[in-house]
Each structure stands twice: as structure tokens, then as C-alpha cells.
Design a protein around this nucleic acid. Sequence first.
DNA 1: AATTAGCAATTGTTTTAAGCGAGTGCTAGG
DNA 2: CCTAGCACTCGCTTAAAACAATTGCTAATT
Lengths: 328, 328
Amino acid sequence: MLSKRQKDILKIIVEHYIKLVRPVSSNNICKLLNCSSATIRNEMVTLENLGFIEKMHTSSGRVPSEKGYRYYVDYLMEPKAMTGEDMLKLQTIFHNQSLPVNDVIAKSMTIISELTNYTAIVLGSSAQENRLQQVEIVPLDKEAVIAIVITDKGHVEHKRIEVPNVSLDEVKKTVELINNLVVGTPISKVSSKLEFEIKPIISKYVKQHEILYQAFYQAFNDFSHKNSMQLSGKVNFLKQPEFDNVDKIRDIITKLEDDELVRSVKAEDSDIKVYIGSENEFDEDVTIIKTKYTIDDESGTIAIIGPKRMEYNRVVSLLEYLKENIKR
Amino acid sequence: MLSKRQKDILKIIVEHYIKLVRPVSSNNICKLLNCSSATIRNEMVTLENLGFIEKMHTSSGRVPSEKGYRYYVDYLMEPKAMTGEDMLKLQTIFHNQSLPVNDVIAKSMTIISELTNYTAIVLGSSAQENRLQQVEIVPLDKEAVIAIVITDKGHVEHKRIEVPNVSLDEVKKTVELINNLVVGTPISKVSSKLEFEIKPIISKYVKQHEILYQAFYQAFNDFSHKNSMQLSGKVNFLKQPEFDNVDKIRDIITKLEDDELVRSVKAEDSDIKVYIGSENEFDEDVTIIKTKYTIDDESGTIAIIGPKRMEYNRVVSLLEYLKENIKR
DNA sequence: AATTAGCAATTGTTTTAAGCGAGTGCTAGG
DNA sequence: CCTAGCACTCGCTTAAAACAATTGCTAATT
């Protein structure tokens, strides 16, 4: 258990380091706590032994360790009131009534990324829970049609289907069947329904049922795997002073280009959670703050990713503010 | 007019520098041309006075200037036969019959970017010249419908339209009108046709014509401005030894993130053209090799962007090979 | 007239040394 | 328990020196 003064010191070290990216010396602190630098030094030895702070070399100031950041976030950080400026910028988006909610979120995160100089991730509401609203077919020419799938939430997916030697009537028949029997089914369950309820029927009525079945199966499959993803401020990492060597930059940028990896930051929890350094799977030199949001049946992830010395309270406030406004 | 030997020397300098990214010394060259280094030095002075090569400082080897690269590309470069490996990798894409041509191009460029370690750009076939095939409306709930626009080439665009207090019948009526009167029109001309032919009619028959007209106008407008764009291997720049300082990297990556700027590399010419350094608008430290491709009525741009010391002949061969295969 | 050998001169790079400054740890005294 | 004082450590800056690469020029050679 840390003493009051130890907590104060740790708090000062973390915040000082976050602001100035320079190791914090005992002298820096004693001014704020009016006691001598030697006293601070003694306490710092204790804090170091407990693993909350670190030295770069024998005679450097102290830097927060991962454990130090963790403690700061869990126990020391004070919620930061939103600044008027931050609020104003976001308000302009919220008040634009004509935008769909998804776009509001995406735009807001872009703003937040610009405001903070961190990178923002929006992992789209998976359409998995959407229900099938309608299937449409538009003939293109003798050999191809466009199949269009619409969900009840307004997601649209389309796929060109090559139908050599299949009569338009047969295609229409199939579409009709799907519209009669599968509408209202959640996208995630359409595949199996297609297989067990539609396939047996079309195989009776439709000559080239196999090719048609395959095509639609494909189309639905594509749909349910397609999740939107937005990344804003990828380059912001280059602005952070701790990312000053080309190798590290290459490393991070490469990771940010890796869709699969980015998708894996998906949030499971609707609280705002902080993952510092090795606590996240993405990269041990970054912190990820993320949360799950939900609108009606859809849910997605919003996340901020930046250096470990992130302005934690500011980012948390911003995300909280955004989440609160999503609700309305 | 350069002498045979001067051309040889310039060629060697360019190719040597492309390969090793190090200034080329007279000694490097004299081995290949069996004459003494002093002779080479004399020739190099001439080449430098003519502006084909440069020194970094009084006693460094020579580096090709922009003019040098230009001369090399125009007169000295020998076409490089495709290596078996390069060919093989691309063949696997070409032979995948089930892919639409657009995807083949996109995938091939990704391969080329991996093969060469440069960045590949595919600027999608503008849908401007497509003709309207059909407009579909799918009602979602009382207040919104999804409008879907399909072109004769199979491009699909959709937009959610909020229609408070508009009866479904009126929407359907409008759609019917569009389908009857506008189908077959090139997308680029739909807007004006909508304004002068449809608007007068619906304003008679449809109560809330203004909101409907606006919605469709918007949808078509979005469509015609939307061009697909693919960028592969953005990070490859980080691998190039000449991009070794953080500022330059930030610069380039920021530019590659700028959609508008990337779009502006659009090729006007169906020849393969090389734009070295300040010859392109993108960045004076890069070379862009680009060409326009055409499939049926659609056309787009494929481009490779990399350092000025690009493997010109290899890239040109690869693009040529790809273009040739697009034709089939 | 063209080529070449030889050499001084230039410049960047690496190495070494010295000095500075920021900061710590420890000791001894308040 | 706190603090003043001081020796010590270590990174950073600067200066000087030694090195390596390469050129330009001159004079000799072919």
C-alpha cells in the first residue's frame, strides 16, 4: 500500500512525463510538494523497488513503468473535464441531424484523432445480427445478374453472379423462394437456412440449382464476414517524440496496415478499458483505450491507440462524451 | 550529343546507384570499361557539366541527377526480360478465371508491389461512362427506404433516403418514372436529365417532390464522384534506404494518405510513362510510372510509385506484362 | 590528342578525449 | 524523519585527430 506522499509523487511523475516526455528528477517534484529533493529521492527508491518507476541509467530521472501507468490509471488519475474547444468540435458533428449514426461515430473519431494526435479506430457494427430484409436481382446481360441483399438496418451488399445457361426465370424463382422463406432471418443464420431449407426445394424446381445455390451462398457469406473498419490519423504516430527511429515506425505502421491485427482490437466490454503496453496484443509500446458501443441491435468498437504516455484522462473523457452522445 | 563511352559511363552510374544506393566512384567504373580511373574522371567532369550526374560533396562519387535518370530512361535503359519468378506469381492471378477483371488488376498490382517493394496504386475505372441499368427501392420502415442504383457494367451504389411523410406509393411512382425515362443514360448525364425531365413531372404528380428529388439527385451525384482506389504497399517506402529520416517518411506517408493527391496521379495516356522527381506533382523525391488501362468502356490507372532510383526497366516490364494480360 | 600514373587536396566518417551538466545515492547531522 | 552536502555516474556536447574515399590536376606516356 502506497503512502499518500508516494501516490502524490507517482502521480506527478506520470503526468510530468506524459506532458514533457523527459525523465522526471527529484528537483522537479520537490518544488510541488515543498519538501527537499533528498526526501523525494528516498521515496523514489521505494517506488522503484516496488516497480512503479524506472531509471534509464544510473543518474537519470525516473520514468513511469508499465505498472506505474497502470496504478495511475486505476487509482490516481482524476477525470478531466472536457475542454470547451474539444466539446465544440464534436458538437458540430452531433448536431448534423442528417448524418446516419454510423457516420457520426466515424467522423467523431476522426475529430478525436485530430484533437489528440493519436490514432482512432472504428470497427464497424457487424451486420451479423441484422436480419434479411429483401433480396433483389437485376439482370445485366445474358450471362450475369447482380444479386443485392438488403438487411432491416439498411446494410446493402451486392454480388455479380455469372449465370451461363441459367434462365432468368429460374433465377427469379430462386430469389422468390429466398424472399418468401428466409426474410427476417439474422444474417448469421441465413447460410444454414439456405442449405437446409432452400437447397432441397430449388434442387427440385431449378435445373442448374448447384451453381445458383453456390452463388447465393457465397454472397451471404461475404456479407456476414464483411465488417467495416476505419482508421484515422495513422500518421499521428510519426508525430510522437518517442517514435523517433525508423525501425519502430516501420513496425507500427506495418501493424496498422494489417487489417486482421487492427480488427483484433475489437472490444468485448461496454466499459471504457485501458490496455497499457504489453497488456494489449497489438504492440508493447502502445496503449489502447477502447470500448464497445451499441445502437439498437448493432454494436461496434471505438478505440484510441497511442504511445504509452497517453493523456489517459483526456482520451477517456472524450470517449465517454462520445458514447453518451451516441445514445441519443 | 554524348559519346558512346559517355553513355556507357552514365548507364553504369545509374544502374550501379540503383542497385547499391551509394555514390559511384571512378574506380568502380574503370574495372568494367578497362581504362584507367583518371580517364573516367575526365569524362565524369564532362557529364557533370552537362548536368547528368552530381556530386554530394567535393570528394564523393557521382550520383545520377534527375536529368541523368531521364536520359537513362529515354535512351540507355534496356528492356528487362521478366524473370520466371515474377511471371509465375502473376500467372496465378491471371489464371483464376472466376475473378472479375477489376479484381485481377487490383490483385496483380498488389503482387507487383510486393515483388518490387514499391507502392502500387490502382485508380478505379470511373463509373462515369456506365449507363444506368435500373433503380430499385427497398422499403425499410415507415421513414426510410434504400435506393439502389445499378449500371449496365454491374456497378452498384446505394443510399438510404429518409422519407418522412412521403407515401410509399409516391416513392414507387418516382422510381418508376426514373426507370422509364432515364435508364440507358450515362451516369454523367443522369443529373441533368433528372433535373430537366423528371423534376417537372414528379412535381406535378408527387406531393413532396422536393425531398424526393433531392434524395435521388444526391444519390446519383455520390455515384458519379465515387471512384475506387487501391493503394498497396504503402509501407514499402519505409524499406527504401534513402527514406531514412523521420521527417521525410512523415512527409511521404502523409501524402499517400491524402486521397485527393493520390487520385491526382491519374494517367491520361495509355502508354507507360515515367515521371521522375520534379516531373511529377506528387513529391520531388519519388518516381511515378503509370499508365491508363481500358476494358470495354471503362478505364482506370495503374501506377507504381517509388524512389527515384527505381528499377525502371523491371517496373516497366511488369506493367507491360500486366497490361497485355488485361486485354484478354 | 588521348590516356594514364601519381599526388595533393577535400570532405565525410570514425575515434578518442575532455569537459559539462543533470541527477542520483549515501552519509552525517539537525 | 528530514535535509544539506558531496562524491559519483552517465549521457551529451565539443574538439581534435586519425582515417578512408575520392576527386582534380599535372606531368609523363602512348
